[in-house]
Amino acid sequence: MEVPTDWNQYVADFPKLREAGVIPFALAQGWPTNGIFGVLLAGIGGTDLFLAVNRDKDVTAVEGPDFRKVAQAYADLRDAVDVNETVGQWNEATAQLINNTAAGNIMGDWAQGEFAVAGKVAGKDYDCLPGLGLNAVLDTGGDAFYFPKNDDPAITEAQLVLAKTMLSPETQVAFNLKKGSLPVRGDVDMSAANACMQKGLKILEDPNGVLPSGEQLLSSDTQQQLQDLEIEFFSDKSMSIDDFVGQFADIMSSAD
């Protein structure tokens, strides 16, 4: 079978994958399940809808036809997934891909670290579709390091050395090649990066390619409510799209 070039092709292949005895979509419970909705919102719904919903908390956008399409895609995926095949942690889902028991999965670029450890090569053994191959955007985020203030100049100096080292181009290249993710600074030479990372780097070059993540746009209270709703919807095949959209709109109407 051909590697699909976008989400729609991939979904269309689900029955064929089933026939071949492969789990079409590897799914981990918990946050990976909500993460999918964010990716679908950006990929299928597009940047405008993503920002209208997450940044502007626009209830009419939620109730509009584009959002419904996203919800439909989410429901389709829900109906295609066999609950007995879901796993507990994201790395178990990645392992299903590495072991060839599952065909694909939606996950952050860090999953590449697992592939690398297993000796798999991007572009050859596996491939990536940033933005689901529909809307070339990346939702970015990173980890922050905070240093406590203190009176000992020796410690302060050590903190500066650590910060400098972490952000130095050499460290960034070496670290991201291992983890499979993208560097936090654009001025480093990532020519050694693999095929997937190259795709990501290309998107990063376009200022419109970067989306703020939901975590930056919404309060954790709102995120928690959305997460609860998405998880419930994804697990309960009897929950209708209308119900989902209505609940979603409710939460967004009081979101902050």
Binding site: Q29, G30, T86, D221, Q224, I231, E232, F234, D236
Partner: peptide
């Protein structure tokens, strides 16, 4: 279960903690 599948094994104490 982490409260799953979905929210079908959620309990009050977990709700309190999460929120």
């Amino acid at each position: 279960t982490q409260g799953g599948p979905g929210i079908s094994s959620e309990v009050p104490a977990k709700y309190v903690y999460n929120y």
